[in-house]
Design a protein around this nucleic acid. Structure first.
Length: 464
RNA sequence: UCCUUCUUAGCUCAGCUGGUUAGAGCACAUGACUGUUAAUCAUGGGGUCCUUGGUUCGAGCCCAAGAGAGGGAGCCA
């Protein structure tokens, strides 16, 4: 008999009532007495379980013994109105198949909750918990919504390379990619490692951003986006950083900085609304278990216009606040998280988009303003998360970009291909990067970025 | 990388001023109960007190070093 998913049964129960159905899934709990056993079965299609009623006389003792927390079973029987109080329907089982046993003495997940720290140590089993099944369903929904948002707008999804030979992005320390024998690498006459003997004939790394390649595509296709893994070899040990994370980077020709901000705000609101519309069961569970304000906060984000503020104005607000900050505020500093938190969580109490930063603290490719001091950068700051999006209008003037490269010490022969876009048919364009796991932190209300990706990669940690 | 806290049963934790045989709840096992809702009740098994070294008549507890984890900061998305 064909298996039906629990989500389908529960959402269309009237259609299946008194019908013979087959369910397959994993046992969450079993309880009961000598005559009847109740099994809560979950198959991952929904946060909810369905109650299986096992009339003890119908099954062998051996079979019932193997129905333990964590075991995988298949059951066939009739869907009936429940006699118990906790659910409207349940299955009266007629046939039981033990698909995979789970020794209860050694199975690490118990019926009661576990700490998130413990679950990280058993990341291979944590998707079986309510919390992580919620997070992973939401992660899927958000990834799908990203593609839907851009596809519906006519953006082209561009696959940028994972292995890059360019080290000009300046976005952080990189992981080297090499096939050389690291214990005995070939050397040049001068004694340096001879990368001409390496696989690609040059030194290569895992990408820290697809942006530069995204810009190339935008100069042909108009509006594009990338969505892929990125890698940073920074020794960051925080609840907001991973060594391997996923990033969404749209890049749009003919967008000025204002258009860029409009898109970023619309995009974030779309994603949050998508979660509210499609994953409310999972959100309600997370709201109940971890963060009582989660759903309310998500709803308010969708309704509230984001504050838009110049860096200079932000500095003035911070100075006028008379707050005691660990790092002193003055024009020219890169804002620290205490400053961002003050603006977002105390002063405005809503998301803030900061623009026009001093050029010294931003990347070489950002478009200079007429004042000669600031660039058209924008950071979207979210409550509890900090910087969720970083972006800018790009410098489209060849001479200015070349001058900027010189100032920051990037050799033109490293990124000649990037400069070519400004040489041939240059156009104003803008883009931004959204850290996918930062978005997931916000949408799930989870406190640690290691809990919103299936297998987190952090310094000193690459198990599983 | 810096600051800080923690590490005792499978899990979550208690453990007095350093004192004899290290406890609880949950989980697990056995039994009871004819409809349970993270079932309940009874009984039971389960310990390298993170590791190494030191102080002491005596260390889970004090000291040192190391390992691992959490939180904060920096870097950033």
């Amino acid at each position: 008999m064909k298996r039906i998913k629990i989500k389908e049964i529960l959402s269309n129960s009237s259609q299946y009532i008194d019908q013979q159905i087959t369910l397959k899934g994993w046992v969450r709990t079993k309880r009961g007495n000598k005559h009847v056993a109740f099994v809560a079965l979950n198959d991952g299609s929904t946060i909810h379980t369905i109650q299986i009623v096992l009339d003890v006389v119908k099954f062998s003792e051996d079979q019932l013994k193997d129905v333990t927390t964590g075991a995988c079973i298949g059951v066939t029987g009739k869907l009936v109105q429940s006699q118990g109080a906790g659910q409207s329907v349940e299955m009266q089982a007629e046939a039981l198949e033990i698909i995979g046993v789970a020794d209860p003495e050694t199975y690490p997940l118990q019926k009661k909750g576990h700490s998130l720290e413990f679950l990280r140590e058993i990341a291979h089993l944590r998707p079986r918990t309510n919390t992580f099944s919620c997070v992973l369903r939401l992660r899927h929904a958000m990834a799908f919504a990203v593609h839907k948002f851009y596809n519906d707008k006519g953006f082209v999804y561009v696959h940028t390379p994972i292995i890059t030979g360019s080290d000009a992005e300046g976005a952080g320390a990189m992981f080297q990619v090499t096939t050389l024998d690291v214990s005995n690498p070939p050397k040049t006459k001068e004694g340096a490692i001879d990368y001409t003997k390496d696989f690609f004939g040059k030194s290569t790394n895992l990408t820290v951003s697809g942006q530069l390649e995204g810009e190339l595509a935008a100069m042909a296709l108009g509006e594009v986006y990338t969505f892929g893994p990125t890698f940073r070899a920074e020794n960051s040990n925080t609840t907001r950083h991973l060594a391997e994370f996923w990033m969404i980077e749209p890049e749009m020709a003919f967008y000025e900085i204002q258009d860029n901000m409009d898109l970023a705000e619309e995009f974030l609101k779309y994603l949050v609304q998508y979660a509210l519309d499609n994953c409310i069961d999972d959100l309600n569970f997370l709201n109940e278990m971890y963060d009582k304000e989660l759903v309310g906060r998500l709803k308010s984000i969708v309704e509230t216009p984001f504050v838009r503020l110049n860096y200079t104005e932000a500095v003035e607000i911070l100075i006028a606040s008379k707050q005691k900050f660990e790092y002193k505020v003055e024009w020219g500093i890169d804002l620290h998280s205490e400053h961002e938190r003050y603006l977002v969580e105390k002063h405005f109490m809503k998301p803030v988009i900061l623009t026009n930063y001093p050029k010294e603290i931003k990347a070489f490719y950002m478009k200079a303003n007429e004042d000669g001091k600031t660039v058209r950068a924008m950071d979207v700051l979210f409550p509890g998360i900090g910087e969720i999006i970083g972006g800018s209008q790009r410098e489209d003037n060849l001479e200015k970009l070349q001058a900027r490269c010189k100032e920051v010490g990037i050799h033109e022969n490293e990124i000649w291909w990037y400069l070519d876009t400004r040489k041939f048919g240059s156009a104003p364009h803008s883009g931004f990067g959204l850290g996918f796991e930062r978005l997931m932190l916000f949408v799930t209300g989870m406190g640690n970025i290691r809990d919103v990706i299936p297998f987190p990669r952090t310094p000193q940690s690459a198990e599983f």
